[in-house]
Amino acid sequence: MTHSFVLASRNNSSHATFFILHGIPGLEDYQYWVAFPFCSVMYIVAMTGNIIILHIIRIDHTLHVPMYLFLAMLATTDLVLSTSTQLKMLAILLFHDHKIEYHAFLIQVFFIHAFSSVESGVLMAMALDRYVAICFPLRHSSILTTSVVIKLRAAVMVRGLLWVSPFCFMISRMPFCPNKVIPQSYCEHMAVLKLVCADIRINHGYGLIVAFSVASFDLIVISVSYVMILKAVLRLPSGEARLRAFGTCASHIGVILTLYIPALFTFLTHHFGHHVPHIVHIIFANVYLLVPPMLNPIIYGVRTKQIRDRVIQGCCGKGP
């Protein structure tokens, strides 16, 4: 590992051929014990849970409705995010494989930011679906038609791809300093910009515009949707129904906050949090990529009766 750092610092070419991902600075002696119980288990749970959800939705045609189509898109997004980040993270923590080639680095930057935006958009679409289902139950199928669902899914995907593509284009044209060490476990746009030996004000500005436009729009829609949902829930005559609805809303809001709080903290720390301890920044940066893909299939899958029943039937060997 030390030899790799020396090689990285000696590479004086302005066009980088590789970077060195440090992992978790300050915990080098304990990275194996962090990786095995946490990262490995989280990755296995995320992959297994999301693949099961996709399989159940694919084979059960009664689940081909907006709620489950959005859930399938969320599961696919989580699989992409997990695979594009956690495999390399595990290689770093378990096998000290810190080197990442230049093109692999660009691909990881693209997938992390594009599919983080897609995940945010899918959560927004799911909140809209729940709002329509609870507040306008008789008109749900006429409002969220198959055509509308397809357009929403396409808009969320296109937004993520188009907004993030300029990141990679601008970085690919930047000259890099001799130091190629990225002091974290994956290639994040703002962490990489700190290695650029050029004026990065345009990159900073564009990053702020993208982050705040995506996060603010999605959070406003999600917040308004759940406020309206809670108002509708409070009007339910049955106390048991209200409690069950509150429990569902609370778990969904918890998943949303698990994504947004670490993501916004990480982004704002890069720009303004110069006094935040680096280890705190790195932990939050890892949480927002590790935890949501693991929690989403548990919260949205296990707590959903149709999917839970299918999983139980599969485990017990019973037919539907």
Results as ranks from 00 to 15, higher is better:
A72L: 03
V291Y: 06
G314S: 01
V148G: 04
L138Q: 12
M174S: 15
S238F: 06
Y30D: 08
I44T: 15
G205L: 05
S216C: 14
V80S: 01
L94Y: 07
V192F: 11
F36P: 00
G160V: 13
H3Y: 07
P25V: 15
S116M: 13
T48A: 05
C249K: 02
R130E: 03
F18Y: 13
S40T: 06
V287R: 02
A198M: 11
V221M: 07
I171D: 03
A127T: 08
N12W: 07
M42H: 02
L93G: 04
H281M: 09
T266P: 03
K151G: 01
M170V: 14
N12G: 07
C135E: 15
S251Y: 06
L74W: 08
Y131C: 14
I56C: 10
I171A: 12
K318H: 10
E101H: 12
A245L: 09
M1Y: 00
L257T: 00
P277Y: 05
W33M: 07
R58Y: 11
L162Y: 02
L208W: 07
D309V: 15
K194R: 12
R244D: 04
D309K: 10
A91D: 02
A285N: 04
L234F: 10
K88C: 05
L243Y: 04
V164I: 15
V158K: 06
L94C: 10
E240F: 06
Y30R: 12
S147E: 04
S213D: 01
G121A: 03
P277H: 06
A215H: 12
Y102H: 14
K231H: 06
L259P: 01
A114E: 09
L268M: 06
H271G: 05
H140P: 03
C315A: 15
I150D: 00
I134K: 00
P320K: 10
I299P: 09
V233M: 05
L79E: 01
I134M: 03
D129L: 05
H113T: 13
L219F: 11
C187P: 11
S172L: 06
L21K: 10
F115N: 02
H281G: 04
S4M: 07
V302A: 11
V149E: 06
Y131H: 14
H96L: 14
I92F: 00
T17D: 15
H204M: 12
G301M: 03
V80A: 02
F70H: 08
I209H: 05
N11A: 12
H270T: 11
T77I: 10
L128W: 09
M124T: 11
